[in-house]
Amino acid sequence: MENKSVILAPIYKDNLRNRKIIGKIFNILLLISVLAGLFMLTVLLVDIAIEGVPWLRPELFTNYHSRKPENAGMKSAIVGSFIVISLTGIISFPVGVGAAIYLEEYARKNRFTDFINLNINNLAGVPSIVYGMLGLVVFGRMFGLFSKDSWLVQTFSLPVQSGMVNGLVFNLFGIPWLEIHLPFGRSMLAGALTMSLLILPVVIIASRESIRAVPPSIREAGYAMGTTKWYVTRTLVLPIALPGILTGMILALSRAIGETAPLIIMGAFTYVPFLPNSIWDQFTAMPIQIYNWITLPQEDYRIHLAAAGIIVLLLFLFILNGIAVYLRNKFQVKW
């Protein structure tokens, strides 16, 4: 083995200078890639501010869409977005948190649970437009079960209508305000249900993280008192996890408020010159109103009014995000 040490004489190039220069260049490239994104963000916001701020007028909040750009507003869209998002929150919160509790506290680690996990991760990656199509078939049309020629209607001779309201309308238990429309059609309820499905994976994932962050010792302390799982979850785990869950929920809703495609597929209207009376009414939403303005040929709509609408939408987004950040910072417990 003696001969080996001869070869082992360090035959190195003195290359440190070059290596350092390559490192510097790389460092600059990395900085450029970070700044490129931030630069685009700045340009985008500035562009919108320049085009939109002069058009931020009270009419935007008090008027419906109009043939005259200077009179046009997005009152029905703001109200529509507000109601749809509230409904979405009310619907997705219990289901999402329930799923998170099941997966974190109850589910055994087996192949079925793995499958549910894989499925949730996959759903989070399904394009929002596909949720729109799901909502259209399941909620909007209910597979055509309530159309005139469906087997269901024929068999039971259901009194379906056609015209402004399509399908079956009845009062549940005969109570006047418990009106039910089947199918849900282009109603706010249908839109909210679709949005709920869309944000459900996000709500589940965020809630799970928050529940997981509750230290096991808390649960053990509860079980040591001889209580049941649900009791421990309800009284010990959920109160601690709740701020985190709410933060995730609000962030999910702030994603929903900007979603356009699913509502378009669901058949949300672009021109709604009235405010909704019930969840069965047709509706429009802020991003749809904005989209509508962008597609109009006149520059006042396409450039200015659209930008003003975007500013309003972004303001709502920032408020929601602000609340989420506030909740997170205020109630965050470090273990």
Binding site: M1, I11, R19
Partner: peptide
């Protein structure tokens, strides 16, 4: 290590001798 230092010799022999 030798690669980042642009080692000019026979890499196989270097690897062998280091492992030895």
């Amino acid at each position: 290590g030798p690669k980042i230092n642009q080692f000019q010799g026979n890499m196989d022999e270097l690897v062998e001798s280091c492992l030895m």
